[in-house]
Every structure is written in C-alpha cells, then in structure tokens.
Design a protein around this nucleic acid. Structure first.
Lengths: 241, 241
DNA sequence: ACCCCAAAGTTGGAGCTCCAAATTGCCGCC
DNA sequence: GGCGGCAATTTGGAGCTCCAACTTTGGGGT
C-alpha cells in the first residue's frame, strides 16, 4: 500500500485497521464525511467513497441523518463442536465451549412436497415429506433459521422419532450423504436489494452467494441444496438484524 | 421499481435486463459514460455509479481506455449430474448432459500434513496424508481447481486405489460424512483485493464468501472445509480468467 | 418538570469538472 | 501497401456543490 495508492483506499485501510484491532469497538461512530475530509485531508468524494466501501464490506452501517457506526462483530461459534449426536435432546440442545454457547430448537411436521421441493428431491408432486424447522442460536441470539425437507419415508419409524431424534434421522441418510459429498452447492440466490446474477430458472450452477449465518450481519436469503437421489433439502433463511 | 427510485438504479436495471435477455451478448460493449448520460438523460455521476454497480455485480468489466464490456456468462453445469460413482474412470471422467460437458482430472500423491492441515484434520504435525489435486472442467474450460487432504489411512489400500479410485475413497469416508452433514462451512476467505472480515486467525464461523466455481468470473480463493473427526479438507482455488 | 419545536448535523442521491493513464483508430508518411 | 505516431475516446481517481430526508440536540415556552 504505497502512498501512490488511491487516496480513498488509505482512508479505508486506516478505519478498517481501527475496527479490526478494536480501537473502534462495535457501535462506535465513524467520523462523518466532513470530519474525514479534515482528518485525512481528502476531498468529500474520497471520504464518501471510503465509507461506501467499508459499508459494502459489512464493517460499518450508515444511518441516514445519524452517521456511520461500527457493526457488531459476528458471534464466533466454534462450529466444529456442533455435533448433533454429541449433544442431542428431545427438543433443544446446547453446548458450552470456548465461551460461545450454541443452542438450537427444531420441530418436525408432515407436509406435502411443493413442485419445487418435489423436483429437487426427485419425488412426485404432493408426495409426503417431513418438514423440519430449525432455529440455531449463538450466545442466545438466533443466527440461522433453516427448514429442511426430506422424503417422509426417511423419517420412519415415527414412534422412534422423538427418542432418537436427529441422530436417527441423520443416520438413516448416511449412504446418501456419502454419495453426494462433492455436490454441496447452493442455488443462485436472490439478494434482497439486487437480483445479481440472472440465470435461467432452475439451472443450478456451483455458486455460493455471500452468506453469513453467524453474527448479526444482514444475511441474504440463500438456499443450501444438497441434492442427489432423494436427499434432504435445506433452506437457510436470513434473520432480521 | 417506481420512477421515484434512484436514477442510477434505473440505468442499472435497464442494462442488466439487456444482458440477461441476451440483447447484450457476452463481449458486447456497454455505452460509455458520455453515451449513457445522453441516452438516459442522467448526469455523469449516475452513469458512472451505474457502471460501478454492474461491475461490482460481475456482469460487466471495465477496461481503462477502452470501455465496459459484458462478461462471459458462467458455464452452466448441471451439477446434480456430477456423481462420481456414476461416471468414474481411472484418470479423468466425463459426462455429457444438457449440452454441457463436465469433466475432471485428479491426481493423488502422498504428503505430510502442514500444521494448518494437521490441526483441522485432527492429526499430528507431519502426519502422512493423501493430497489429491482436481481439475474440474465445464465445456472443456477449467472451472475449479481443488486440492483435498485426507488422512493417509483413508486412502488404503493403495493397490486398489487406481482401480476403484474416487469411489473407494468416498465410500471409505461414508460414516464420517454422515456425522458432519450439518457442518459444511467455509473459512473466512481472503479476497484478493480487500481483506474484508477480520477475525482471529483460526476461528471458524459459518461464513460463505461469494464464490463462483463455474464460469470465468473471478473466483475469490476460498477454502471449503468439511471438518469433523478426521475428515477431508478441500481447498478450492480460483482460476485465472 | 415536561414537552415540543427548530436548528444543526448527517447520509445518500445527483450534477458538474479536471486530469492521468491507457487504448484505439485513423491519417499521413515512407 | 505497410507502418508509425498522433489525436480522440474512455476509464477511474479526485474535487466541489446543492439538496431532500432524516436524527439528534438543545433550547425555549408552558
């Protein structure tokens, strides 16, 4: 980053550094455009561009009439500890580690496959499926909503469902998972503010949109699809900040 | 999109539409700033901002001194057809479907676990691992480079390796995959042009950066990590456009 | 003590301009 | 016909300004 770099990048780099090293903690106000021009001796254009870049990176938010503020850091979840079979419970579970607390609730219900679901699970329309809603929390704050769909037959036997729960369900899927381990991908998502890539509907490309499940950053709605022969289909949705 | 929307969004929407519906095919030049101001009756600022947004979306590229041009569309791969066990071959494989041709090469080699690899595979430093390089192609063009690491013992027996290849390797991993089906995530990546999110090194959050494996778009380097007890670790790297 | 309003400050849209660096096409010269 | 170099064009950085809409704050005035 020589001094010949664009001026606005100098401002970006400096503010970003302060956010990263903690000089500017979450919630702290960023100097306004006017203040930035004075502080760094740059023009309004550069100051404004710098703020736009930082906002695009998700490090700050601009509130009209108020100012720019440092966003909350994402909740750091030790996700390699999220082992369903290690810590299962009838409804809700939690695991304490490294100071971060990961908990989740889930609820399964019978449903009929919509055309979209049916096609991707390779089932007939209106075929019986099991829909499961999940709420994942990090340090008490919900960080992900997910809805999974799987062929109803995979949820059998229903009597055993409540006792073995997720473990049973996941075990029943073992072989299938193996077969599609390299096929984890997402559909082209539709970000709220802009319909970025436009591809023929239904055509899947290996494409993962910027997605944060952790933290309070704005999460673009995005489907995680694990396709294959009759495999489960997980929809991950964003939460309100 | 009422007429009260920001002017620059009107321009963005119109150009994007033309790119999507094919009026502006890949390689086609986008009107210059000067032309846009006349064509849409907007100021330079709006025209410039519109081009910046489209470039940020990856739909167009700007070449200094020349102009903006529509980028190539991504290669559309029917990825649900990428089934290793359906179409395996000793070295290289291919499957023809829907006009798109997906092929890949791979080469396995013994290696020693680096500290980073060792930690995430829960092995000791310098433990024997099998490193496999993949080249995935769509319509002949390489769309993804990937390197996977797995404990060497998973690659046994070596004699059978060449005959059953990927199938054997994947089968051997079946159980492990089941256990971590919900844990697919990526490390916080480091985009080439900006070190976006800064998190303590080694801390994993459920975070997926914008990643395109298909097409000739610039792909930010990003690791796909499927953690768990001794599971494989896949590094996906971008290719030059 | 409390409430409301007005002034000041801030963001985000939009317009105009100047300039350096790079590209491209064209004109004229050999 | 071929070639070199100049001029027009284009991007991207940077500066300045005006304005509408929205927050915040600090007075009053009741």
């Amino acid at each position: 980053m020589a001094t010949s770099d664009p001026v606005y990048l100098r401002v970006v780099a400096d503010i970003r550094r302060q956010i990263v090293d903690g000089s500017l903690p979450p919630g702290a106000p960023i100097p306004s455009r006017a203040q930035l021009t004075r502080k760094y001796g740059v023009g309004e254009t550069a100051a404004r561009h710098a703020l736009r870049v930082l906002a695009a990176e998700g490090l700050i938010v601009g509130r009209v009439g108020s100012g720019h503020y440092v966003r909350d850091r994402p909740v750091l979840l030790p996700l390699h500890r999220w082992r369903f079979h290690d810590h299962h419970a009838p409804f809700g579970a939690d695991i304490q580690s490294q100071g971060a607390r990961a908990t989740w609730d889930w609820r399964a219900e019978p449903a009929e496959a919509t055309p979209d679901i049916a096609q991707r699970l390779r089932l007939d329309d209106s075929a019986p499926v099991t829909r499961t809603h999940y709420v994942f929390r990090g340090d008490g704050r919900p960080v992900q909503l997910a809805t999974s769909y799987e062929p109803a037959e995979f949820s059998e036997p229903p009597a055993e469902e409540s006792s073995r729960g997720l473990v049973a369900r996941l075990s029943a899927l073992g072989v299938k998972v193996t077969e599609i381990v390299e096929q984890v991908y997402t559909r082209v998502p539709q970000p709220a503010e802009s319909d970025t890539l436009a591809l023929p509907a239904g055509v899947h490309v290996l494409h993962v949109e910027r997605t944060h499940w952790a933290g309070d950053r704005p999460v673009e709605t995005s489907d995680i699809v694990i396709p294959g022969d009759r495999f489960r289909l997980v929809y991950a949705h964003s939460l309100q900040p």
